[in-house]
Simulated assay, not measured.
Amino acid sequence: MSSVKLQVSSPDTFSERSYDLTITIEKLKHKLETATGIPPDSQLLTLCRSESDPTVIRQLDDDTKALGFYSPENGMLIKVSDKDPSKSMTGQYTDVSQVEKFEMTPEEYERRQDTVMAYKKAHKMGRFAPAAEHPPATPPVAPSHHIVVGSRCEVDLSGGEGLIKRGTVRFVGSTQFGKTGGEWIGVEYDEPVGKNDGSVEGVRYFTCTPKHGGFVRPDKVKVGDFPEEELEVEEM
């Protein structure tokens, strides 16, 4: 293995990138500056198991060593800490503690006429709608008999707007989430466009890298001989 796919996190960013195992830690820091905004001399690099399991494996503290010296594996996490936030202004876009908050009592909110609640009242929407005589029918779910675990697939993530992502079917069946029932398709995406690692609300349906898992209805899935989408490997 000449390269490794790693997660990279900092106080303001998260990404997934591929790096050559022969790159030195010094050169790696320069590449990480473009991803995190933290200058190389302010970086403190920690190799962890993953984003979901932040167990520390080693500190990448020798700039002369190659990345491969620390034996990183695909899916592991490099946590980039900032030793001198004054240089990079780390956290300035995520720290909202100094932002003045606008507060309003429930009574004041109900008296206003320019709110979502006022609009719903006027148009009898949501909880202000008249009670229906009959409960709405459960929306139909497309049959999924042609979708089997292990199939390569394309998933429409845009509702018809052209955002199609590829992956592998890892689960077919009913779940403990979703109020309307029916079947769900669990997909392991080739790219980190998912919302989970195959588990939802504490229930595991399959296992994959964090942010690569997702669940969609069968009508969003098209199975076929779709090759795996490759992430671009950064050059030294």
Rank of each mutant, 00 (worst) to 15 (best):
S86E: 15
P106C: 12
E154C: 02
V99W: 11
A137N: 02
Q92T: 00
G162F: 10
K79L: 14
G167I: 04
G75C: 06
Y189G: 10
R112H: 06
G173I: 06
A132F: 14
P143Y: 07
Q98S: 12
I147C: 09
K124S: 03
V141A: 07
G194W: 11
T64Q: 08
K87L: 15
V169T: 09
G75D: 05
H123M: 01
L67S: 03
E191A: 15
S158G: 15
S86R: 15
F128I: 02
K179D: 02
T105F: 07
R127M: 10
P140E: 09
S81P: 01
T94F: 09
Y109P: 03
S86P: 13
H123K: 08
A66D: 03
Y93W: 11
D114N: 15
T94W: 02
S88H: 13
P139D: 13
G126Y: 10
G159V: 05
D63N: 14
M89R: 07
E108W: 05
R166A: 01
V96D: 11
H134P: 01
S97Q: 14
T90W: 01
D95N: 15
E191N: 14
A129E: 10
I185V: 15
Y119W: 12
P130R: 10
P136I: 00
G159N: 09
P139K: 15
K120A: 12
G186I: 12
R111Y: 00
H134I: 12
K79F: 12
G75R: 07
P106H: 11
P136G: 00
I164G: 09
V141E: 02
R152W: 01
K195G: 08
G159I: 10
E133R: 05
P130Y: 08
Y119G: 09
S151G: 13
V172H: 02
R112Y: 07
K124N: 06
G150W: 06
H146Y: 14
D63V: 12
G150F: 05
G126H: 09
M76N: 13
E191M: 15
R112L: 14
E183I: 03
D84E: 08
S151R: 11
G91D: 12
G194L: 10
E110G: 03
V149T: 09
V148T: 08
V169K: 04
K120W: 08
G159H: 03
Y109C: 05
Q113P: 13
E161S: 11
E107K: 06
G150K: 09
S88A: 15
V96R: 13
R166H: 02
M89C: 04
F177G: 04
G159F: 04
